[in-house]
Design a protein around this nucleic acid. Structure first.
Lengths: 340, 340
DNA sequence: CAAAAAAGCCAAAGCGCTTTGGAAGACTCT
DNA sequence: AGAGTCTTCCAAAGCGCTTTGGCTTTTTTG
C-alpha cells in the first residue's frame, strides 16, 4: 500500500493525502480525519527510502564506531547504549553504527554526512581539541558530544559530568581523613575526562598544600589487570600512597586484588574510592569491602544525549549549550582515616 | 556531483555511466575506463538514498535491540559488536540498531522488513522455539542466528558454540578429580545456551551414574551479585557441592567473593570452572586463583556472523547451514581433587 | 454586491538512482 | 549483398514520497 494507491482509493490527490498525514494546515479537518482513518485502517506506512530521498531526513542518529584489531570497545558503551535506546525507542529513532578504522574516522564522518545517512551524530570519549568535533562542526550536521573537548574557537553542545568536581571531592574527603599521599589510577589521559579527574585531585591536594607525586598517577586502559599492576607498582614503591582514587569499577577489582595479594587491607592500609558508571552487573556495594564511589549513571547520560539529539533534529534545541551534571560521592566502607 | 551531471560532462547517458560504474558487461571497456576515471577525479559517490529507493538494497545489517527500564544490555553484546564491526568496516557495511520494547519486538522486526531498512538481520540470545526466528524466517529477510533455537519445522542458519560439549567436558574433568556433588550457576534458563550447558553437565554426571541435585542448579541474570548469592545459598545448604560450574566470568567474581566470605578456599574446598567469553577487561588468569575456563571468543563470533550476513546478502551463501564451534577447556589453578 | 482574501485541493516537477526496451552501427555468415 | 548477430549506447519509465505553483470555491470585507 503506497501513497498513490491510498490517494486513489480516497479519490484525492497524493498531495492532499501527504499533507493530511504530515499535519500541514492547508487541508480540511474533515478530510484529514478521513485520510488518517483510511491510512490507519489499511496500515499505510510511508516508505522511508522514498521519504528520505525527497526530504533528506532519515530518522536515524549516527555513531562512528572505532574498530580495529587493537581496539576494544569498552563496556561503558553498552550502558550508554541502553539509555540511548530507551529514549530512541519511544521516538521511533534508529541508531546506525558505522564502523571505522580507529585511526581514520574522518573518512567515515565525511561519508555519512555527504550521503545524508543520518540526521545527527554523537561523539563520545572526546579528547582536547578533538578532530572529530572540529570536523563535525564544520560539516554542519547536528551533533552532541558526550563528554567535553577543549581548546576550540567555537562552542558546541555537550553533555558531560563534573569529573573534576567529583574527583576533587573524593580527594578532599581522603585528605580530611588524614591522608597525605594520594594516588590516582586513571584512564587514558589523552581523553578529557581523565584530564579533568586528575585536575580535580590536584586541586584538592593543592588546597591543602599537598601535591600529587609524579609516580602516583598512572594512565592506563581501564582493565582489571591494569588496575592490579598499577596498584602493585604504587604500593611496592618507597613512598606508597595511603589512598587511591580509581577511574573505574573494573580497575578497582584489580586494585582490591593487588592490595590483598600484598597482604594489606582496605581500608586499614589503603583507602579506595572509585568512579562508578553504574553497571547493573557489578555494584560497588558488593565488593568485599563496600566501595566508596563517585557515581553517575552513564545510562542516564545516554538517554539524555538521545533526547537532545532528537530535539536538535526537530529544531527544538539550538545553540551550543553545554551541560554538566553533578556527580554523587557515595561513602562506603572502603575509606578510613590514614594509618598512623 | 550527481549521476546526471557526470553523464552530461562525459557526453554519455546516465544509463551508460551507471552501468559502467556498476560493472555491467554491455559497455565498452574503453568507455568504462573513461567513466571510472572521471568519477574518481570528481569524487562522485552515488547517493545511497536514491540507490536504495531504486534497488531496495541498503548496505546495512540490522539488529533489534531489546530495551526498557527492566532490560539491561549485557556486556557480551559489546564484545560481539567489536567483532561484527571489524568485519563490517572492511566491507562498508553499517549496522542499524532498532530499539524495541523487549516485550514486543515483533512490531519492530516487521517494520524494518516492510520498510526495507536493512538487507539482513541477526538474532542473538535465542530461546527454544524463539518467535523472532520464526517471524524473521517467514518475513523472508536473510538472517543469521547467533546461538541456536530449537523445535522448528524448518531449518535456519546459525553460528553457535558447543555449549553442551563445553560444559560436559568441564563436568567430566571435575568428576574425574573425584567430585561427586557438582553445582551449576547458569544464566537465564529460558535461553538455549543455558539449556545446553545444563544438559552438558547432566550428561557428564549421568555417564558416571551421578545426577545434578535439583537445588544444585540455578538460573539467574549473569551479574556479580547473583553469582555471590547463588554461591552462598549453595555452600550454606546441607549437601554443599564441592565443585561449581559457572556460566560467566562476571558471576564467577561473585562466586569467588562468596567462597572467601564463607572462609572457604578455591580450589581447596570448592573447585570452580567458568565460561569465558574473552573480555579484554577481565581475564580468568588474573583471578586471585587463576580460573579454569571453557573459552570461546564472542568477538570472533561477531566477526563470523557479519561475514555470513554479508555472504547471504550478496547471494554467496544460501541454505540453512548451522555451524557449531568447539570450545576450549583451559585448566588453571581453580580446580583440584575433591576434598576428603 | 463586487472585490479581495482565505481555504482546500490538484497536477506535475522534483529527489538521484537503476533498469527496461529499443535502436544504431559494426560484424559475421551464407 | 542481404539477413542475422553482436556490441554499444540511449530515452524514458520507474522507485514512492514531498513540495511548488496554481486553480477553484468559499468566505470575508468595505
Amino acid at each position: 500500500m503506497n501513497l498513490k494507491q491510498l490517494a486513489h482509493m480516497l479519490a484525492l490527490s497524493q498531495t492532499t493525502v501527504s499533507r493530511a498525514l504530515n499535519g500541514y494546515p492547508e487541508v480540511n479537518e474533515e478530510t484529514r480525519r478521513r485520510v488518517m482513518d483510511a491510512a490507519k485502517r489499511h496500515g499505510y506506512r510511508p516508505n522511508p527510502s522514498a521519504r528520505r530521498l525527497a526530504t533528506g531526513k532519515t530518522g536515524m542518529i549516527g555513531y562512528v564506531l572505532p574498530t580495529g584489531a587493537a581496539v576494544d570497545i569498552d563496556p561503558h558503551f553498552v550502558e550508554f547504549l541502553s539509555g540511548l535506546g530507551d529514549y530512541a525507542r519511544s521516538h521511533e529513532l534508529d541508531l546506525v553504527l558505522s564502523p571505522a578504522d580507529a585511526d581514520d574516522q574522518e573518512t567515515t564522518y565525511r561519508r555519512i554526512v555527504a550521503n545524508r545517512q543520518v540526521d545527527a551524530v554523537y561523539i563520545s570519549s572526546p579528547r582536547p581539541a578533538d578532530r572529530r568535533v572540529a570536523l563535525v562542526n564544520t560539516l554542519g550536521i547536528p551533533f552532541i558530544v558526550h563528554g567535553r573537548s577543549e581548546g576550540f574557537d567555537f562552542d558546541y553542545a555537550f553533555t558531560d559530568i563534573d569529573n573534576e568536581g567529583a574527583f576533587r571531592e573524593a580527594a578532599r574527603l581522603l585528605i580530611q581523613l588524614g591522608h597525605r599521599r594520594l594516588a590516582l589510577i586513571n584512564g587514558d589521559d589523552r581523553e578529557t575526562f581523565a584530564i579533568h579527574r586528575e585536575r580535580g585531585v590536584r586541586r584538592a591536594l593543592a588546597a591543602s598544600g599537598l601535591t600529587l607525586g609524579e609516580h602516583h598517577v598512572c594512565s592506563v586502559d581501564m582493565t582489571e589487570e591494569n588496575g592490579y599492576r598499577a596498584t602493585r607498582r604504587l604500593l611496592e614503591a618507597g613512598d606508597a600512597p595511603t589512598a587511591i582514587a580509581c577511574s573505574s569499577l573494573i580497575m578497582a577489582l584489580g586494585v582490591v586484588r593487588a592490595v590483598r595479594d600484598l597482604g594489606l587491607s582496605i581500608p586499614g592500609d589503603v583507602s579506595l574510592i572509585a568512579h562508578d558508571d553504574v553497571f547493573p552487573w557489578l555494584r560497588p556495594e558488593n565488593f568485599s569491602v563496600p566501595l566508596s564511589t563517585t557515581r553517575s549513571s552513564i545510562r542516564l547520560a545516554g538517554a539524555r544525549v538521545a533526547e537532545r539529539l532528537a530535539a536538535r533534529i526537530s529544531g527544538l534545541e539550538e545553540g551550543a549549550r553545554g551541560e554538566v551534571w553533578p556527580v554523587d560521592l557515595v561513602v562506603r566502607g572502603s575509606v578510613a582515616g590514614a594509618p598512623a
